[in-house]
Design a protein around this nucleic acid. Sequence first.
DNA 1: GCGTCCAGGTCTACC
DNA 2: GGTAGACCTGGACGC
Length: 319
Amino acid sequence: MVELPHSFIFDIRPIPPFDFELTVRKPAGWSLFTPFEVYEEGTMWTATDLEGVLAGLKLVSEGTVERPGVGVELFLEESPGPDRLLNMKRMLAHDLGADYDLAAFYHFGKKDPILRHAVEDLKGMHSTSQSTIFPDALLSILLQMTNIKRSSQMMDCLLSRYGELAKFDGKQVFGWPRPERVARLEAAQMAAECKFGYRAKRIANLARRFAREGFPSFEELEKLGAEEAKRLLLELPGIGDYSADIINPHGGFPIDTWSADVFGQLFFGERAKEGKKGIDRIKKEGLRRWGKWSWLAFFYVVQDLGNLSRRLDMDLRLV
DNA sequence: GCGTCCAGGTCTACC
DNA sequence: GGTAGACCTGGACGC
């Protein structure tokens, strides 16, 4: 357990529209930073990595969708210098998507027969990220070849056994483990303790690669070209085409066997067929339709399946 | 109760 | 370069 006694209070002024509730608690149940974060009556307590250290966060909405504000209390183990604190504030705003202007995407989306519903339903929902891509890479490995229930079980075990427990503001929140910690573990140990199966070796190899050589941060990947970022991601052990598209900040169209059913219906009026060929066909169509907006389009559609099912008279539920 | 199948991919050997 | 087969585990399903 890591006590975080030093706290710093400040505000973030997101680019509107910014819906706090939709952004920190995605409709599809995606976590903001960790599955162990706590949300009570408009306040979120969570933990993430900022500037290479564990940060506890208390986030509260201080505005409206059109005039947004986020009140932040940042908890740290040690007090940082002023420059470092300033950079942490900037990184957090970036991680919350508060510095991203959705206007151009909404302009595009309103003309699309599918997206126009999603951008109307979820106005102000921002895509969020973490400074290091290690958690997303771990998550993508735990999503491989299993159902969502078992993925959640494996993820909970990973964080509760090997993650960092942040103690702050009367709360305790597990954050994602650091590569150095996982790199010291044997794959067989993780497989036995968390039932990762063959994924244990992939997680161990991934952590050792991060611990040994490091890897560009999310922001550094953003500064690279989309193809270069994906090429680097594909060099990571356990990361293939699907996982790289999930992680890549330039966005791709991360179609798996489940989302292939959803987008198969939306694009072609039928669930996916022909296995991988069907997935390739749907992915191609998504990239053709939505181009540089493919990731945001994917994100908005996946978060809005309930509403889209009613609006388009389709059964887009998970099967 | 038991056997079989398969799920929100990736890697490797083989052609 | 493309492609089949292996890979952990546990829940669903049929019998």
